[in-house]
Protein backbone atom coordinates (compact mmCIF):
# COMPACT_ATOMS: atom_id res chain seq x y z
CA UNK A 1 0.00 0.00 0.00
CA UNK A 2 2.68 2.37 1.12
CA UNK A 3 4.95 1.51 -1.77
CA UNK A 4 2.19 1.88 -4.30
CA UNK A 5 1.33 5.30 -3.08
CA UNK A 6 4.95 6.30 -3.18
CA UNK A 7 5.35 5.08 -6.73
CA UNK A 8 2.28 6.90 -7.83
CA UNK A 9 3.59 10.04 -6.28
CA UNK A 10 6.88 10.07 -8.15
CA UNK A 11 5.19 9.29 -11.47
CA UNK A 12 2.96 12.26 -10.89
CA UNK A 13 6.01 14.34 -10.14
CA UNK A 14 7.57 13.36 -13.44
CA UNK A 15 4.40 14.14 -15.34
CA UNK A 16 4.14 17.49 -13.68
CA UNK A 17 7.77 18.31 -14.44
CA UNK A 18 7.24 17.28 -18.06
CA UNK A 19 4.17 19.47 -18.37
CA UNK A 20 5.90 22.51 -16.96
CA UNK A 21 8.91 21.95 -19.18
CA UNK A 22 6.66 21.78 -22.24
CA UNK A 23 4.77 24.91 -21.37
CA UNK A 24 8.05 26.68 -20.66
CA UNK A 25 9.23 25.69 -24.12
CA UNK A 26 6.00 27.05 -25.62
CA UNK A 27 6.49 30.31 -23.75
CA UNK A 28 10.00 30.64 -25.11
CA UNK A 29 8.72 29.95 -28.62
CA UNK A 30 6.22 32.75 -28.19
CA UNK A 31 8.81 35.24 -27.05
CA UNK A 32 11.51 34.15 -29.50
CA UNK A 33 10.08 35.87 -32.61
CA UNK A 34 9.73 39.14 -30.76
CA UNK A 35 13.32 38.89 -29.55
CA UNK A 36 14.45 38.04 -33.08
CA UNK A 37 12.64 40.99 -34.62
CA UNK A 38 14.07 43.38 -32.09
CA UNK A 39 17.56 41.99 -32.37
CA UNK A 40 17.49 42.12 -36.15
CA UNK A 41 16.07 45.61 -36.33
CA UNK A 42 18.55 46.92 -33.79
CA UNK A 43 21.45 45.32 -35.58
CA UNK A 44 20.46 46.58 -39.03
CA UNK A 45 18.67 49.80 -38.21
CA UNK A 46 20.08 51.31 -35.03
CA UNK A 47 23.11 52.69 -36.89
CA UNK A 48 20.89 54.85 -39.12
CA UNK A 49 18.59 56.18 -36.41
CA UNK A 50 20.01 59.58 -35.65
CA UNK A 51 18.89 63.18 -35.32
CA UNK A 52 18.76 63.62 -39.10
CA UNK A 53 16.48 60.65 -39.48
CA UNK A 54 13.80 62.47 -37.48
CA UNK A 55 14.36 65.96 -38.90
CA UNK A 56 15.27 65.69 -42.56
CA UNK A 57 13.51 64.82 -45.77
CA UNK A 58 14.72 61.87 -47.82
CA UNK A 59 17.74 62.69 -49.97
CA UNK A 60 17.66 61.98 -53.72
CA UNK A 61 19.19 58.71 -54.88
CA UNK A 62 22.95 58.68 -54.60
CA UNK A 63 23.20 61.30 -51.90
CA UNK A 64 23.97 59.86 -48.51
CA UNK A 65 22.10 60.80 -45.35
CA UNK A 66 18.67 62.35 -45.16
CA UNK A 67 15.77 61.15 -43.01
CA UNK A 68 12.11 60.27 -42.87
CA UNK A 69 10.76 63.32 -41.05
CA UNK A 70 7.94 63.69 -43.57
CA UNK A 71 6.94 60.04 -43.22
CA UNK A 72 6.91 60.20 -39.44
CA UNK A 73 4.78 63.35 -39.51
CA UNK A 74 2.60 61.76 -42.20
CA UNK A 75 1.92 58.69 -40.12
CA UNK A 76 0.98 61.01 -37.26
CA UNK A 77 -1.42 62.96 -39.47
CA UNK A 78 -2.95 59.80 -40.92
CA UNK A 79 -3.49 58.37 -37.45
CA UNK A 80 -5.08 61.69 -36.47
CA UNK A 81 -7.54 61.61 -39.36
CA UNK A 82 -8.24 57.92 -38.74
CA UNK A 83 -8.92 58.69 -35.06
CA UNK A 84 -11.40 61.44 -35.96
CA UNK A 85 -13.40 58.85 -37.86
CA UNK A 86 -12.68 55.64 -35.98
CA UNK A 87 -12.91 56.76 -32.35
CA UNK A 88 -16.34 58.46 -32.29
CA UNK A 89 -18.03 55.89 -34.50
CA UNK A 90 -16.31 52.97 -32.80
CA UNK A 91 -17.03 54.17 -29.26
CA UNK A 92 -20.63 55.10 -30.01
CA UNK A 93 -21.13 51.76 -31.74
CA UNK A 94 -19.78 50.01 -28.67
CA UNK A 95 -22.10 52.05 -26.45
CA UNK A 96 -25.03 51.08 -28.63
CA UNK A 97 -24.11 47.40 -28.45
CA UNK A 98 -23.62 47.40 -24.69
CA UNK A 99 -26.38 49.76 -23.59
CA UNK A 100 -29.13 50.11 -26.15
CA UNK A 101 -29.29 47.42 -28.77
CA UNK A 102 -31.82 44.63 -28.71
CA UNK A 103 -30.52 41.09 -28.72
CA UNK A 104 -31.42 40.78 -32.38
CA UNK A 105 -29.82 43.95 -33.69
CA UNK A 106 -26.77 43.28 -31.53
CA UNK A 107 -26.33 39.84 -32.99
CA UNK A 108 -26.20 41.34 -36.46
CA UNK A 109 -23.96 44.24 -35.47
CA UNK A 110 -21.45 41.94 -33.79
CA UNK A 111 -21.55 39.60 -36.73
CA UNK A 112 -20.84 42.46 -39.12
CA UNK A 113 -18.11 43.90 -36.87
CA UNK A 114 -16.40 40.54 -36.64
CA UNK A 115 -16.48 40.14 -40.40
CA UNK A 116 -15.10 43.65 -40.83
CA UNK A 117 -12.33 42.80 -38.37
CA UNK A 118 -11.40 39.89 -40.56
CA UNK A 119 -11.43 41.77 -43.88
CA UNK A 120 -7.89 41.86 -45.33
CA UNK A 121 -6.52 45.34 -44.90
CA UNK A 122 -5.83 45.84 -48.60
CA UNK A 123 -9.57 45.61 -49.18
CA UNK A 124 -10.01 48.86 -47.30
CA UNK A 125 -7.46 50.44 -49.59
CA UNK A 126 -9.37 49.28 -52.65
CA UNK A 127 -12.72 50.43 -51.28
CA UNK A 128 -11.46 53.90 -50.40
CA UNK A 129 -9.63 54.11 -53.72
CA UNK A 130 -12.95 53.59 -55.46
CA UNK A 131 -14.92 55.82 -53.13
CA UNK A 132 -12.58 58.76 -52.63
CA UNK A 133 -9.51 58.67 -54.83
CA UNK A 134 -11.41 58.11 -58.07
CA UNK A 135 -14.11 60.60 -57.11
CA UNK A 136 -11.70 63.42 -56.29
CA UNK A 137 -9.14 62.26 -58.85
CA UNK A 138 -6.30 62.46 -56.35
CA UNK A 139 -4.52 60.38 -53.76
CA UNK A 140 -4.78 62.17 -50.46
CA UNK A 141 -4.14 62.14 -46.75
CA UNK A 142 -7.92 62.14 -46.30
CA UNK A 143 -8.24 58.92 -48.28
CA UNK A 144 -5.46 57.23 -46.34
CA UNK A 145 -6.88 58.37 -43.00
CA UNK A 146 -10.33 57.17 -44.03
CA UNK A 147 -9.03 53.71 -44.92
CA UNK A 148 -7.27 53.43 -41.55
CA UNK A 149 -10.34 54.89 -39.78
CA UNK A 150 -12.54 52.19 -41.30
CA UNK A 151 -10.20 49.60 -39.87
CA UNK A 152 -10.36 51.17 -36.42
CA UNK A 153 -14.16 51.19 -36.16
CA UNK A 154 -14.83 47.49 -35.56
CA UNK A 155 -11.75 47.13 -33.36
CA UNK A 156 -12.78 49.95 -31.05
CA UNK A 157 -16.44 48.99 -31.16
CA UNK A 158 -15.85 45.51 -29.84
CA UNK A 159 -13.40 46.49 -27.10
CA UNK A 160 -15.66 49.34 -25.98
CA UNK A 161 -18.62 46.99 -25.83
CA UNK A 162 -16.64 44.47 -23.82
CA UNK A 163 -15.43 46.91 -21.20
CA UNK A 164 -18.87 48.53 -20.86
CA UNK A 165 -20.44 45.14 -20.27
CA UNK A 166 -17.93 44.57 -17.47
CA UNK A 167 -19.35 47.53 -15.55
CA UNK A 168 -21.65 45.97 -12.95
CA UNK A 169 -25.34 46.67 -13.49
CA UNK A 170 -25.62 47.89 -9.91
CA UNK A 171 -23.95 51.15 -10.92
CA UNK A 172 -26.44 51.76 -13.70
CA UNK A 173 -29.33 51.06 -11.35
CA UNK A 174 -27.90 53.23 -8.59
CA UNK A 175 -27.54 56.11 -11.01
CA UNK A 176 -30.98 55.74 -12.59
CA UNK A 177 -32.50 55.47 -9.11
CA UNK A 178 -31.16 58.97 -8.40
CA UNK A 179 -33.30 60.29 -11.23
CA UNK A 180 -30.31 60.66 -13.54
CA UNK A 181 -31.27 60.22 -17.17
CA UNK A 182 -30.26 57.18 -19.16
CA UNK A 183 -27.85 59.08 -21.37
CA UNK A 184 -26.12 60.88 -18.48
CA UNK A 185 -25.88 57.58 -16.64
CA UNK A 186 -24.12 56.04 -19.60
CA UNK A 187 -21.71 58.93 -20.12
CA UNK A 188 -20.96 59.96 -16.55
CA UNK A 189 -21.23 56.69 -14.71
CA UNK A 190 -20.79 53.74 -17.05
CA UNK A 191 -18.29 55.18 -19.52
CA UNK A 192 -16.40 56.95 -16.77
CA UNK A 193 -16.07 53.72 -14.84
CA UNK A 194 -14.83 51.99 -17.97
CA UNK A 195 -12.79 54.91 -19.30
CA UNK A 196 -9.39 53.29 -18.92
CA UNK A 197 -10.64 50.22 -20.69
CA UNK A 198 -12.04 52.32 -23.53
CA UNK A 199 -8.78 54.24 -23.87
CA UNK A 200 -6.88 50.98 -23.84
CA UNK A 201 -9.03 49.72 -26.71
CA UNK A 202 -8.38 52.91 -28.67
CA UNK A 203 -4.63 52.68 -28.12
CA UNK A 204 -4.55 49.05 -29.17
CA UNK A 205 -6.47 49.92 -32.31
CA UNK A 206 -3.96 52.70 -33.06
CA UNK A 207 -1.07 50.33 -32.48
CA UNK A 208 -2.74 47.85 -34.77
CA UNK A 209 -3.18 50.24 -37.71
CA UNK A 210 -0.01 52.32 -37.27
CA UNK A 211 2.03 49.83 -39.23
CA UNK A 212 -0.54 49.10 -41.96
CA UNK A 213 0.87 49.48 -45.43
CA UNK A 214 -1.65 47.87 -47.74
CA UNK A 215 -4.58 50.26 -47.15
CA UNK A 216 -2.26 53.22 -47.84
CA UNK A 217 -0.73 52.00 -51.10
CA UNK A 218 -3.37 53.55 -53.33
CA UNK A 219 -4.95 56.02 -50.94
CA UNK A 220 -2.23 58.05 -49.19
CA UNK A 221 0.14 56.86 -51.90
CA UNK A 222 3.29 58.34 -50.35
CA UNK A 223 5.19 61.53 -50.93
CA UNK A 224 8.91 62.32 -51.01
CA UNK A 225 8.29 65.79 -49.63
CA UNK A 226 6.25 67.41 -46.90
CA UNK A 227 2.52 67.29 -47.33
CA UNK A 228 1.15 70.84 -47.37
CA UNK A 229 -2.42 69.97 -48.20
CA UNK A 230 -4.36 67.02 -46.79
CA UNK A 231 -6.11 66.67 -50.14
CA UNK A 232 -2.78 65.66 -51.68
CA UNK A 233 -0.65 62.52 -51.33
CA UNK A 234 1.13 62.11 -48.02
CA UNK A 235 4.09 60.07 -46.84
CA UNK A 236 3.73 57.39 -44.19
CA UNK A 237 6.34 55.40 -42.36
CA UNK A 238 5.19 51.96 -43.53
CA UNK A 239 4.92 53.17 -47.14
CA UNK A 240 8.37 54.67 -47.03
CA UNK A 241 9.80 51.51 -45.53
CA UNK A 242 8.13 49.51 -48.27
CA UNK A 243 9.43 51.60 -51.14
CA UNK A 244 12.93 51.85 -49.66
CA UNK A 245 13.12 48.16 -48.89
CA UNK A 246 12.31 47.14 -52.47
CA UNK A 247 14.73 49.70 -53.92
CA UNK A 248 18.13 48.54 -55.20
CA UNK A 249 20.14 51.00 -53.10
CA UNK A 250 22.18 49.95 -50.07
CA UNK A 251 21.69 53.32 -48.41
CA UNK A 252 17.92 53.17 -48.73
CA UNK A 253 17.91 49.66 -47.29
CA UNK A 254 19.59 50.99 -44.18
CA UNK A 255 17.00 53.74 -43.96
CA UNK A 256 14.21 51.17 -44.31
CA UNK A 257 15.63 49.21 -41.38
CA UNK A 258 15.81 52.37 -39.35
CA UNK A 259 12.19 53.21 -40.24
CA UNK A 260 11.04 49.74 -39.24
CA UNK A 261 12.88 50.09 -35.94
CA UNK A 262 11.24 53.44 -35.23
CA UNK A 263 7.81 52.01 -36.09
CA UNK A 264 8.24 48.99 -33.85
CA UNK A 265 9.52 51.12 -30.99
CA UNK A 266 6.50 53.41 -31.43
CA UNK A 267 4.10 50.48 -31.25
CA UNK A 268 6.03 49.12 -28.30
CA UNK A 269 5.63 52.45 -26.52
CA UNK A 270 1.87 52.39 -27.12
CA UNK A 271 1.69 48.92 -25.62
CA UNK A 272 3.71 49.97 -22.60
CA UNK A 273 1.25 52.83 -22.19
CA UNK A 274 -1.60 50.34 -22.28
CA UNK A 275 0.12 48.22 -19.61
CA UNK A 276 0.57 51.33 -17.54
CA UNK A 277 -3.09 52.29 -17.87
CA UNK A 278 -4.30 48.82 -16.97
CA UNK A 279 -1.87 48.46 -14.11
CA UNK A 280 -3.99 49.09 -11.03
CA UNK A 281 -6.61 46.81 -9.63
CA UNK A 282 -9.78 48.72 -10.41
CA UNK A 283 -8.94 48.65 -14.07
CA UNK A 284 -7.99 45.06 -14.33
CA UNK A 285 -11.66 44.14 -14.04
CA UNK A 286 -12.28 46.46 -16.93
Amino acid sequence: MMALRHDNHSWRKIKSALASALSMLAAVLVIAPLGLVFFYLLQKGAGSVNWHFFTQLPKPVGEAGGGMANAIAGTGELLGIASLIGIPIGVLGGVYLAEYGSARSNWWLRFVADILNGVPSITWGVVVYGMVVLTFKSFSAYAGGLALGFMMIPLIMRTTEEVLLLVPNGYREASLALGISRWKTIVHIVMKTASKGIITGILLALARIAGETAPLLFTAFGNRFWNRNLAEPIAALPLQIFSYAISPYEDWHRQAWAGALVLVVGIFVINVLVRFLTRDRTVRIL
Binding site: P168, G170, Y171, E173, A174, S175, A177, I189, T193, T282
Partner: peptide
Protein backbone atom coordinates in the same frame (compact mmCIF):
# COMPACT_ATOMS: atom_id res chain seq x y z
CA UNK B 1 -29.87 48.44 -2.81
CA UNK B 2 -28.87 45.22 -1.13
CA UNK B 3 -25.25 45.47 -2.16
CA UNK B 4 -23.69 48.82 -1.40
CA UNK B 5 -22.56 50.35 -4.67
CA UNK B 6 -20.69 53.65 -4.35
CA UNK B 7 -19.44 54.74 -7.76
CA UNK B 8 -15.87 53.46 -7.94
Amino acid sequence: FQKSNPFP
